[in-house]
Write a protein that binds this DNA or RNA. Sequence first.
DNA 1: CTTTCGATGATCT
DNA 2: GATCATCGAAAGG
Length: 199
Amino acid sequence: MSLTRSPVNFAQSPQTVARQLIGWTLLVDGIGGVIVETEAYDMDDEASHSFKGPTLRNAPMFGPPGRAYVYLSYGLHWCLNVVCQEAGHGAAVLLRALEPTHGLEAMRARRGCHRAELLASGPGRVGQALAIDRSFNGLAFDEPPFELLAPRDEIELVVGVRIGITKAGHLPWRFGIANSPFLSKRFSEAAHGAARDLV
DNA sequence: CTTTCGATGATCT
DNA sequence: GATCATCGAAAGG
Protein backbone atom coordinates (compact mmCIF):
# COMPACT_ATOMS: atom_id res chain seq x y z
CA MET A 1 0.00 0.00 0.00
CA SER A 2 1.22 3.45 -0.82
CA LEU A 3 0.35 6.66 0.90
CA THR A 4 2.67 8.76 -1.19
CA ARG A 5 -0.02 9.86 -3.64
CA SER A 6 -1.73 12.89 -2.16
CA PRO A 7 -5.48 12.47 -1.70
CA VAL A 8 -5.71 16.12 -0.70
CA ASN A 9 -7.70 18.00 -3.30
CA PHE A 10 -5.94 21.33 -3.68
CA ALA A 11 -8.53 22.57 -6.17
CA GLN A 12 -10.66 23.90 -3.32
CA SER A 13 -10.78 27.13 -1.37
CA PRO A 14 -7.65 27.88 0.68
CA GLN A 15 -9.79 27.82 3.83
CA THR A 16 -10.93 24.28 3.05
CA VAL A 17 -7.45 23.09 2.15
CA ALA A 18 -5.93 24.77 5.21
CA ARG A 19 -8.42 22.91 7.41
CA GLN A 20 -7.98 19.58 5.64
CA LEU A 21 -4.18 19.63 5.76
CA ILE A 22 -4.17 19.64 9.56
CA GLY A 23 -3.06 16.21 10.74
CA TRP A 24 -1.35 15.16 7.51
CA THR A 25 2.34 14.36 7.65
CA LEU A 26 4.52 16.45 5.36
CA LEU A 27 7.95 15.14 4.44
CA VAL A 28 10.62 16.71 2.26
CA ASP A 29 13.25 14.17 1.30
CA GLY A 30 11.88 11.99 4.09
CA ILE A 31 12.23 14.64 6.80
CA GLY A 32 9.33 16.44 8.45
CA GLY A 33 6.29 15.80 10.60
CA VAL A 34 2.59 16.28 11.25
CA ILE A 35 1.10 19.55 10.06
CA VAL A 36 -0.32 21.18 13.20
CA GLU A 37 -0.88 24.77 12.01
CA THR A 38 -1.87 26.43 8.71
CA GLU A 39 -3.24 29.72 7.46
CA ALA A 40 -5.36 30.48 4.40
CA TYR A 41 -4.61 33.37 2.04
CA ASP A 42 -7.17 34.24 -0.58
CA MET A 43 -7.56 36.68 -3.41
CA ASP A 44 -9.40 39.84 -2.30
CA ASP A 45 -7.50 39.39 0.96
CA GLU A 46 -5.49 42.45 1.94
CA ALA A 47 -2.92 40.33 3.77
CA SER A 48 -2.29 38.05 0.80
CA HIS A 49 0.72 38.42 -1.45
CA SER A 50 -1.72 37.96 -4.34
CA PHE A 51 -3.94 40.90 -3.34
CA LYS A 52 -2.52 43.36 -5.86
CA GLY A 53 -2.40 40.89 -8.72
CA PRO A 54 0.36 38.81 -10.28
CA THR A 55 4.00 39.84 -9.87
CA LEU A 56 7.28 38.03 -10.34
CA ARG A 57 7.36 36.94 -6.68
CA ASN A 58 3.80 35.66 -6.35
CA ALA A 59 3.63 34.02 -9.80
CA PRO A 60 3.16 30.49 -8.39
CA MET A 61 0.04 31.68 -6.52
CA PHE A 62 -1.56 32.31 -9.91
CA GLY A 63 -0.42 28.98 -11.34
CA PRO A 64 -2.02 25.55 -10.98
CA PRO A 65 -3.09 24.29 -7.54
CA GLY A 66 -1.00 21.77 -5.64
CA ARG A 67 2.32 23.51 -6.25
CA ALA A 68 4.66 25.13 -3.78
CA TYR A 69 4.86 28.89 -3.35
CA VAL A 70 8.08 29.78 -1.52
CA TYR A 71 9.05 33.28 -0.45
CA LEU A 72 11.72 34.92 1.69
CA SER A 73 10.25 36.57 4.78
CA TYR A 74 11.95 39.60 6.33
CA GLY A 75 15.02 38.87 4.27
CA LEU A 76 15.82 35.89 6.48
CA HIS A 77 13.25 33.13 6.56
CA TRP A 78 12.01 30.85 3.78
CA CYS A 79 8.29 30.20 4.07
CA LEU A 80 6.40 27.37 2.37
CA ASN A 81 2.88 27.57 0.93
CA VAL A 82 0.78 25.29 -1.24
CA VAL A 83 -1.32 26.85 -4.00
CA CYS A 84 -5.08 26.19 -3.94
CA GLN A 85 -8.33 26.70 -5.82
CA GLU A 86 -7.57 27.14 -9.52
CA ALA A 87 -4.99 28.71 -11.79
CA GLY A 88 -5.34 32.48 -11.81
CA HIS A 89 -7.11 32.61 -8.45
CA GLY A 90 -4.18 33.68 -6.25
CA ALA A 91 -4.98 31.46 -3.26
CA ALA A 92 -2.58 29.55 -1.04
CA VAL A 93 -2.10 27.93 2.36
CA LEU A 94 0.89 28.85 4.53
CA LEU A 95 2.37 25.92 6.48
CA ARG A 96 3.04 27.41 9.89
CA ALA A 97 4.05 24.54 12.15
CA LEU A 98 4.87 20.82 12.22
CA GLU A 99 5.15 18.26 14.96
CA PRO A 100 8.51 16.68 14.07
CA THR A 101 8.23 12.93 13.50
CA HIS A 102 10.76 12.02 10.78
CA GLY A 103 14.45 12.98 10.72
CA LEU A 104 14.63 14.69 14.11
CA GLU A 105 18.43 14.73 14.15
CA ALA A 106 18.64 16.29 10.69
CA MET A 107 16.21 19.00 11.74
CA ARG A 108 18.12 19.63 14.97
CA ALA A 109 21.29 20.09 12.95
CA ARG A 110 19.65 22.44 10.47
CA ARG A 111 17.96 24.45 13.20
CA GLY A 112 20.83 24.47 15.65
CA CYS A 113 18.43 23.71 18.44
CA HIS A 114 17.55 20.61 20.41
CA ARG A 115 14.01 21.01 21.73
CA ALA A 116 11.45 19.28 19.50
CA GLU A 117 8.90 22.00 20.36
CA LEU A 118 11.11 24.59 18.66
CA LEU A 119 12.18 22.69 15.55
CA ALA A 120 9.26 23.61 13.29
CA SER A 121 6.89 25.76 15.36
CA GLY A 122 6.60 28.73 13.03
CA PRO A 123 6.70 29.32 9.27
CA GLY A 124 10.36 30.35 9.24
CA ARG A 125 11.29 27.39 11.43
CA VAL A 126 9.40 25.02 9.11
CA GLY A 127 11.40 26.34 6.20
CA GLN A 128 14.70 25.92 8.00
CA ALA A 129 13.85 22.47 9.40
CA LEU A 130 12.84 21.20 5.95
CA ALA A 131 15.74 23.00 4.21
CA ILE A 132 13.33 24.92 1.99
CA ASP A 133 14.71 27.58 -0.34
CA ARG A 134 13.94 29.23 -3.66
CA SER A 135 14.65 26.01 -5.57
CA PHE A 136 11.42 24.49 -4.20
CA ASN A 137 9.29 27.27 -5.65
CA GLY A 138 6.71 25.85 -8.05
CA LEU A 139 7.35 22.16 -7.29
CA ALA A 140 4.34 19.83 -7.09
CA PHE A 141 3.33 18.79 -3.59
CA ASP A 142 2.33 15.27 -4.65
CA GLU A 143 5.73 14.44 -6.13
CA PRO A 144 9.20 13.96 -4.67
CA PRO A 145 10.88 15.48 -2.79
CA PHE A 146 7.49 16.19 -1.19
CA GLU A 147 5.42 13.45 0.41
CA LEU A 148 2.07 13.67 2.19
CA LEU A 149 0.87 10.91 4.52
CA ALA A 150 -2.73 10.70 5.69
CA PRO A 151 -3.68 11.26 9.35
CA ARG A 152 -3.99 8.12 11.46
CA ASP A 153 -6.00 9.49 14.37
CA GLU A 154 -8.91 11.83 14.88
CA ILE A 155 -7.89 15.48 14.88
CA GLU A 156 -9.18 18.03 17.36
CA LEU A 157 -9.31 21.10 15.17
CA VAL A 158 -9.05 24.71 16.31
CA VAL A 159 -9.75 27.88 14.34
CA GLY A 160 -8.55 31.38 15.07
CA VAL A 161 -7.51 34.68 13.56
CA ARG A 162 -4.29 34.79 11.55
CA ILE A 163 -1.21 36.08 13.31
CA GLY A 164 1.87 38.05 12.35
CA ILE A 165 0.09 40.10 9.68
CA THR A 166 -0.59 43.84 9.57
CA LYS A 167 -3.77 43.76 7.45
CA ALA A 168 -7.04 41.81 7.57
CA GLY A 169 -6.07 40.50 10.99
CA HIS A 170 -9.64 39.69 11.99
CA LEU A 171 -10.30 36.88 9.53
CA PRO A 172 -10.54 33.43 11.22
CA TRP A 173 -8.33 31.70 8.71
CA ARG A 174 -5.78 30.08 11.03
CA PHE A 175 -6.26 26.35 11.66
CA GLY A 176 -4.52 23.98 14.04
CA ILE A 177 -4.54 20.97 16.30
CA ALA A 178 -5.96 21.99 19.66
CA ASN A 179 -3.42 22.18 22.46
CA SER A 180 -0.52 20.87 20.36
CA PRO A 181 2.81 21.80 21.98
CA PHE A 182 4.19 22.32 18.48
CA LEU A 183 2.10 25.36 17.51
CA SER A 184 3.84 28.66 16.79
CA LYS A 185 1.43 30.16 19.32
CA ARG A 186 -1.46 28.80 21.35
CA PHE A 187 -5.02 29.35 20.19
CA SER A 188 -7.27 31.23 22.58
CA GLU A 189 -9.87 29.41 24.65
CA ALA A 190 -12.51 31.29 22.67
CA ALA A 191 -11.04 29.77 19.51
CA HIS A 192 -11.41 26.30 20.99
CA GLY A 193 -15.06 26.98 21.70
CA ALA A 194 -15.66 28.39 18.23
CA ALA A 195 -14.08 25.32 16.63
CA ARG A 196 -16.33 23.03 18.67
CA ASP A 197 -19.34 25.01 17.51
CA LEU A 198 -18.33 24.31 13.91
CA VAL A 199 -18.71 20.55 14.38
C1' DC B 1 5.99 34.89 32.16
C1' DT B 2 5.90 39.36 28.99
C1' DT B 3 7.43 43.04 25.78
C1' DT B 4 10.80 45.18 22.81
C1' DC B 5 14.01 45.44 19.26
C1' DG B 6 17.65 44.43 15.72
C1' DA B 7 18.82 41.51 11.81
C1' DT B 8 18.45 41.32 6.74
C1' DG B 9 17.13 41.43 1.74
C1' DA B 10 13.62 40.95 -1.86
C1' DT B 11 9.89 43.45 -3.52
C1' DC B 12 7.26 47.29 -4.69
C1' DT B 13 6.32 52.47 -4.69
C1' DG C 1 12.83 54.61 0.74
C1' DA C 2 9.19 51.79 3.05
C1' DT C 3 7.27 47.58 3.91
C1' DC C 4 7.23 42.84 5.52
C1' DA C 5 2.50 36.04 6.13
C1' DT C 6 9.66 36.14 11.25
C1' DC C 7 12.91 34.84 14.71
C1' DG C 8 15.82 35.08 18.69
C1' DA C 9 18.08 37.58 22.15
C1' DA C 10 17.65 40.79 25.72
C1' DA C 11 15.39 43.26 29.19
C1' DG C 12 11.71 43.85 32.47
C1' DG C 13 7.97 42.13 35.97
